[in-house]
Computed example of a mutant assay.
Amino acid sequence: MTEDIEHRLDRVESRFAMHDLVSDYCHGFDKRDWDRFAAIWWPDAVWDIGPPFGTFEGSDGIAHVTKDILWDAWLASSHYTTNLVITFEGKDRATGVCDVDCIGTTSDGQAQTVAASYFDIFERRGGVWKIAHRKVKMYHFNPLSGVTLSPPA
């Protein structure tokens, strides 16, 4: 009985940890908080963003695409993730899929909207959950013609 409760409690705590990783991705990216964003990935993680960006491996690859490409391309962004479904594949490995909507302004001042899904592999190493692999499947990446995004006056 105690083993069953410990197992169930571990699953609950693990789910919360994975939800936090998905949220920290959004907060870290949108608020340009590199430490928060970098903390979600294992050093050997793969971030497969897909077209038009590509696939980036390891801490250096993820830092490069984030700091040198994506943050330069976006003046501002707001990511909203939902519908996270987590499937455990063992005690220290799980997959997740969630949907994301992003709205923002690109460096040329164009308002954009993006809809995608994130397909994650989460791994627990040394008692800590992080993302080992994230595949992005984009459904649309479109300009919002005639729309200017600005803070309230």
Rank of each mutant, 00 (worst) to 15 (best):
T105H: 05
W42D: 12
R124I: 05
T87M: 10
P152A: 10
A73D: 10
V147H: 00
P51Q: 14
T2A: 03
R15Q: 09
T95P: 02
G104N: 03
D48H: 12
V12G: 08
Q110A: 06
N83L: 02
P143R: 15
E13K: 10
P143A: 12
S78L: 06
L75H: 09
R124M: 12
M18S: 09
W71E: 14
Y80V: 07
W74S: 03
L144N: 10
W74K: 03
P51I: 07
D44S: 12
L70M: 14
A116T: 08
I131D: 15
D68V: 01
E13F: 13
T148A: 01
F37D: 02
F29R: 00
P51H: 11
A94D: 04
Y25E: 06
G127W: 07
D35R: 14
M18I: 13
E89C: 03
T113M: 11
D60S: 02
F88D: 03
R93E: 11
C98M: 07
R124Q: 11
T55H: 08
T87G: 05
P51R: 08
P152S: 11
R15V: 03
D101N: 12
R8K: 12
A38M: 00
V136K: 13
D68C: 02
D99G: 12
F29L: 02
I40T: 01
S23N: 06
P152C: 11
A94G: 08
S107M: 05
R15K: 06
P52E: 14
K137V: 07
F56T: 09
D101W: 05
K67F: 08
D4Y: 01
G61I: 01
S14K: 11
A38E: 05
R8V: 02
W47F: 13
W42T: 14
R93Y: 01
F53I: 05
P51G: 08
L21V: 06
W47K: 12
E13R: 11
T82L: 05
E57K: 15
V114K: 05
F122M: 04
T106V: 13
H27L: 15
T2E: 03
G127F: 07
C26H: 08
W74Y: 06
K91P: 15
F88E: 07
V46N: 08
I131P: 03
F37R: 06
G58V: 04
D68S: 10
R15L: 04
W129T: 15
D10K: 00
P152V: 12
L70I: 02
F56A: 04
G109Q: 10
T106Y: 10
L75K: 08
T81M: 15
F29N: 01
M138D: 13
D33I: 01
D108R: 10
K135R: 12
A73H: 06
F16K: 13
I62K: 10
M1S: 10
L75I: 13
G146T: 12
P143M: 08
R125W: 04
G50E: 00
D60P: 00
D30E: 05
F88R: 02
R36L: 15
V22K: 05
D24Y: 11
I62E: 04
E6R: 09
S145W: 00
L9G: 02
K135S: 06
G50K: 09
I121M: 00
S59C: 00
R124W: 05
P152N: 12
A73F: 06
L75R: 09
Q110V: 08
L84H: 04
S14D: 14
A63K: 14
R8F: 05
G104K: 01
E57G: 14
